[in-house]
Design a protein around this nucleic acid. Sequence first.
DNA 1: GATGAGCGC
Length: 288
Amino acid sequence: MATETVPKTSWADDVDELEQPKTEDFVDENGIRTTIEYAVNEDGKKVKITRRTKRTLQKSLVEHAVAEHKTWSKFGHEKGNKPGPDRATTTVGENVFLKLSQGNKSSEPEPSAEKTMKATLAKAGAGKVVCRLCKGDHFTAKCPYKDSLAGLEETPPAGNDDDGETALPAAPAAPGAPSKYIPPSMRGNRGPGESMRGTGSRDDLPTLRVTNISEDTQENDLRDLFGTFGRVARVYVGRDRETGIGKGFAFVSFEDKATAQRAMEKTHGRGYDSLILNVQWSQPREQK
DNA sequence: GATGAGCGC
């Protein structure tokens, strides 16, 4: 095997002999494509234009595939026919372009109709929070008179109060009266000892704040961990709104306060995911 | 170290 000794000029030299490259184009390890363009602006000055874009489908490759596809000979019922669509059997529609954008939002400017709608709403003061019970400036769920007014506002159709236990809204309401489902907790006083004792069944659950959890701890992980002590009513993992990455804390609500207490004592200071759990009673989320 | 989202016109 003789070594090739022909003094060939390097291909790179060939490139150098050409005029200055007009563009540079490369894709880095993050999939970010950088295009550097050299141009001469209107002042006659040489400028360098750098564009950094996220790599996407390369148009040239797609078009090449399409062009190649067009050369395929026909098969099936169309076998032997000439290339290209037969207008007798095929409808050619217009090209449809798929435009991808971030955040499930259109990259097109908002239709002006929507803007005017928003403006109108804002002007009319719609969307303002008005309590259905006391017309106050808060959600009904947060109404301070919720307990006393809820029964008055949502009184079930009268008639069968005597039976005491037949208050289920099973029968459709009479025409005119809105047939609304009344949750058990809102059906007024059914007497002590009924299943849902107390007022708010959701907001005053015994809740533990768990901190020092790893950022990829999921709700289910905590449910598994704390579920061994008793019924877990709710788990919330604090996450960054943008990235969804855990912020290292969570709330675990139990059905039973004694269970929560025991769970706290058993898990506080315990190792979990190579971290030491910190488990405390949570503060109420907001003023009630 | 850290204290929640969403409901609703």
